[in-house]
Amino acid sequence: MAHRLAWDYILKFIIIGDASVGKSSLLVRLTEDRFLVHSDTTIGIEFGSHIVTLPKGERLKLQIWDTAGSCLIVYDVTQRETFDHVETWLQDVREQADEHAIIALVGNMADLPSTERRVSTDEGAAWAHEHGAKTGQNVPTVFETVAQHILEQLRTQRQETDRDDRVDLFARTSTSSCCG
């Protein structure tokens, strides 16, 4: 009897951004479904995984690395300077990652009172749009949206080639997402 895996695909994400924007909090919120109240500075790399079931039934195992696969650039909507640094992070990703890597922009801390917000949702979405991004919201949604884009690439590549199960996830153009 064949053993079925708990997932159909494994996707890897790297979360980057300024110190203290909530990267570890995003990781814990997605992988453990809890809020990280007090967080020490991440030293080295933290890792977590999460299973996502897409509308058509595919199960994806997401491996999330907090510091190549896809990348989440995170900023804190209550700290203007972290948003101002997003362009630098994007340049770093584009220099280090494959040119077709899928990149998502995440405005974290969006659940805080609007009086604390220093970067509006519209401004974050406008920046993302200017850089060819799509817009999404909520922590699980941003991971699921990027995962769906990767799976679409997988399907397209499989249709274009009739080779074995090897698939080039970087065969198409870059896609970015924004939430927050």
Rank of each mutant, 00 (worst) to 15 (best):
L27Y: 12
H85V: 08
T88C: 12
F35E: 02
V52M: 13
V37K: 14
L30P: 02
D33T: 02
Q79P: 00
L54E: 05
M109Q: 15
I103K: 04
I103M: 07
V93E: 06
H100V: 01
D84F: 07
T82A: 12
I43N: 04
A110Y: 11
V37M: 10
T88P: 01
E58T: 06
T53W: 00
G107V: 06
Q79L: 10
C71W: 07
E116G: 14
E32C: 02
Q63N: 04
E116S: 15
R80D: 10
E95Y: 08
F35S: 05
L72A: 10
W65N: 06
R80E: 14
T31G: 01
Q91H: 13
D98H: 13
T31C: 08
S114G: 02
E99L: 02
G107R: 12
T82H: 13
T42F: 05
D111N: 13
I43T: 14
T67Y: 12
P113G: 14
S49D: 03
D98M: 02
T78Y: 07
I51K: 02
V28E: 01
G57M: 01
V28A: 01
D40Y: 14
K61Q: 09
L27A: 10
D40W: 06
A68N: 07
P113K: 14
S114V: 14
E116K: 15
I103Y: 04
R117Q: 15
E58C: 05
L27F: 13
I51W: 00
A97K: 07
C71A: 05
L54Q: 05
E99D: 12
D33I: 00
L112K: 15
I43F: 11
L54C: 05
E123L: 03
G57Q: 01
R29S: 08
E87P: 00
V93Q: 09
T67R: 09
R59H: 04
